[in-house]
């Protein structure tokens, strides 16, 4: 957890990651609020806020009296959402930094290709 952003947003992002890479499979139960709070050493109210955000987005759903589960189709939906944001979040800053150093987009593309085969 870093200090720059609200912790509930960071928790939500962490759970999203786990769903995207399949650590939390669809239709399986996720840890309870208290377990999240203890694991990340954060206030349970904060953990609840993060989880509630994912419930509102439809990535998680509640089974009354049992707990919280990963929704069917959550993995695909979250992956799409992340892809949509990928350009703004990662490519734009990369281009800004490259421009500062005089690296052209073509040179950058070449660097990426090399790094990928390395």
């Amino acid at each position: 957890m870093d200090e720059s952003r609200p912790i509930f947003a960071q928790l939500a992002e962490q759970i999203e990651n786990d769903i995207i890479i399949g650590v939390m499979a669809e239709e399986t139960q996720v840890p309870s609020i208290n377990e999240f709070a203890a694991f990340y050493r954060i206030n349970p109210a904060t953990a609840l806020k993060g989880v509630t955000m994912l419930v509102d987005e439809g990535a998680l759903y509640k089974k009354r009296g049992i707990g919280m589960f990963v929704a069917t189709g959550a993995q695909a939906r979250l992956t799409t959402k992340r892809r949509d944001n990928f350009s703004a979040e990662f490519v734009a800053p990369l281009l800004t930094e490259a421009a500062k150093l005089g690296i052209t987009p073509e040179q950058l593309a070449e660097m990426i290709r090399k790094a990928d085969t390395a």
Partner: peptide, 8 residues
């Protein structure tokens, strides 16, 4: 840790 767990 104990505070958080027990508070929960």
């Amino acid at each position: 840790d104990r505070l958080l767990a027990d508070y929960a």
